[in-house]
């Protein structure tokens, strides 16, 4: 922030509109994105050229030109790296053209993944908040549980996703819940850590003030600790929702590619349908970005309702 202010204040640049744009954020992000897109196209040509050349050889064509070659690298059915516009066409086909209830629609698969992620997110958030409240109020728990909560995250939970799915499947639990449980396990950690930090964030002066009002423990929690923790809670929720979606996607891998974005990726990798994998990947990225934005929106609304600066 400090460097940004300095640059704007430097004499001479003030009246140069480009310099002001460059000092902002939109132009740099745009330029970098365009550069990445350009690199992608170049990589498409480089990676797919071999496939196109092999095709020419099989067709015994020797009169191809460079322009034809470049065009052909972006027209293959199963390219090593599909060009961005190929993915866009696939997205248009599987998102907009097909009815959202069809099994070939990415909206349907996205919803399967997202619903599991949301249920897991809700469960994990609840567990995280309850754990944090218990830890803050019971000193014995703080010493006993905190190290294990941290250690729980060094266990690669996603690695045991297949086992959780298989085991829960053998007792008759199939579909949404097993995936949601994996999501919940990933979610609870950032929420618990953030909430413990947030609930203990009121400083001694504030605690003393509330005590001079002879507030009960419940009032102290309702009027001071919980409001103070809200900002921390939302920061954690943004991390948690992204993790929940990752958990749901990985949870779909061992179910034998039935439904969901993870299943689309898996079946795409079985059949070499690279465009399908990339389309599922892009939808996953969009869904994840939108969910984070939604949490951000909820944060802004809540913070405004609580009267803090917008």
């Amino acid at each position: 922030m400090a460097t940004m202010m300095l640059e704007i204040a430097r004499p001479g640049t003030r009246h140069n509109p480009f310099a002001r744009l460059a000092a902002g954020r939109i132009l740099p992000v745009l330029v970098v994105s365009l550069a990445l897109l350009a690199i992608w196209y170049v990589a498409t040509i480089g990676l797919n050229a071999r496939g196109a050349l092999d095709q020419y050889e099989r067709d015994e064509r020797n009169d191809w030109t460079i322009a034809e070659l470049i065009a052909d690298t972006m027209r293959q059915e199963r390219p090593l790296l599909p060009a961005p516009h190929q993915i866009l066409v696939e997205l248009d086909k599987s998102v907009l053209q097909i009815a959202p209830t069809s099994r070939r629609s990415l909206v349907y698969h996205g919803w399967v993944t997202l619903s599991a992620a949301f249920v897991g997110f809700a469960m994990g958030t609840l567990l995280g908040i309850v754990l944090a409240i218990a830890i803050v109020h019971v000193p014995a728990l703080e010493h006993a549980l905190m190290p294990w909560i941290i250690a729980s995250q060094t266990i690669p939970i996603l690695a045991i996703a297949p086992m959780i799915i298989v085991v829960l499947g053998s007792v008759g639990l199939v579909g949404l819940l097993p995936k949601a449980i994996i999501s919940a396990y990933l979610c609870f950690f950032p929420v618990a850590i953030g909430m413990v930090k947030g609930l203990t964030s009121p400083d001694p002066l504030q605690l003393d003030l509330i005590r001079t009002y002879s507030a009960t423990e419940g009032q102290l929690f309702r009027k001071l600790r919980f409001p103070a923790a809200i900002a921390f809670l939302f920061a954690s929720l943004k991390v948690a929702i992204a993790l929940a979606i990752v958990g749901a996607i990985v949870g779909e891998l061992p179910t034998g590619a039935q439904a969901g974005l993870g299943a689309r990726m898996l079946s795409g990798s079985y059949y070499g349908q690279t465009v399908q994998i990339w389309a599922a990947l892009i939808v996953a990225a969009i869904v994840s970005g939108l969910s984070i934005a939604a949490v951000g929106l909820a944060e802004r609304v809540t913070m405004r309702a609580m009267g803090s600066a917008p």
Binding site: V29, V31, V239, A242, G262, T274, I277
Partner: peptide
């Protein structure tokens, strides 16, 4: 300039389910 352009993109990318590129990398 690059820093201001890459930081938001990097932040977004760290929140994405990058694990999904696994099938592509295997290919």
């Amino acid at each position: 300039f690059l820093q201001r352009g890459l930081l938001p993109i990097g932040n977004l990318a760290s929140a994405l389910p990058i694990i999904g590129i696994a099938p592509i990398m295997v290919m």
